[in-house]
């Protein structure tokens, strides 16, 4: 992969990967470090990957593993990131009803256990299919589906608790 192709890759998928890191960590500073480390680690492999889609999934996989390692080393991280405030939410009172709903969903996702959370972000935010998520996380596709199902039911429960109806 040439420098131009690499730059194009970051322009096209960088925000998606970075956003995933933001969601995963719940903290922009940590997300920046995670994004940077994941991309740097992927350098050697990127020279042999020609499909940009595969390159993105590869970097996402590295980010997931790096974050897992971080969590193992610093046990306080998962607790703090679960409690981290939702980014870009300044004033809840000014939100419209729909924005309130989205805020509720984001909080519900952030409150999910890590295993459910990473699958939820990869599926709903990064737009990966269950098969791709299975490849990224090195787990069976059936496990991805069951985790997604659990995540959905948890989110639904949270939404119902806040008075929202779901289909």
């Amino acid at each position: 992969m040439t420098v131009t192709q690499f730059e194009k890759l970051l322009q096209e998928y960088g925000s998606s990967i970075y956003g995933f890191c933001c969601h995963l960590t719940g903290n922009r500073m940590t997300a920046e470090d995670l994004y940077q480390d994941a991309v740097l680690k992927a350098f050697s492999k990127l020279q042999t990957i020609h499909s940009e889609d595969r390159a993105r999934n590869y970097i996402l996989g590295i980010a997931v593993r790096l974050y897992k390692n971080q969590r193992r080393k610093h046990t306080e991280t998962p607790a703090s990131d679960q409690l981290a405030p939702v980014p870009d939410v300044q004033n809840v009172a000014e939100e419209t009803e729909q924005q309130e709903l989205y805020t509720c969903v984001r909080r519900a996702v952030q409150g999910l256990p890590y295993r459910l959370r990473e699958v939820t972000y990869l599926y709903y935010f990064s737009g990966l299919r269950t098969k791709e998520i299975a490849a990224v996380l090195h787990i069976p596709e059936g496990t991805v589906k069951s985790r997604l199902s659990k995540a959905r039911s948890e989110i639904r429960k949270e939404m119902v608790d806040h008075g929202y109806e779901t289909r």
Binding site: C22, H23, D88, L101, V105, R106, T120, F125
Partner: peptide, 13 residues
């Protein structure tokens, strides 16, 4: 619900 979750998570810096 899927659409709601997708839209809720789409806002990223």
């Amino acid at each position: 619900q899927d659409e709601i979750i997708r839209k809720a998570l789409s806002d990223t810096p």
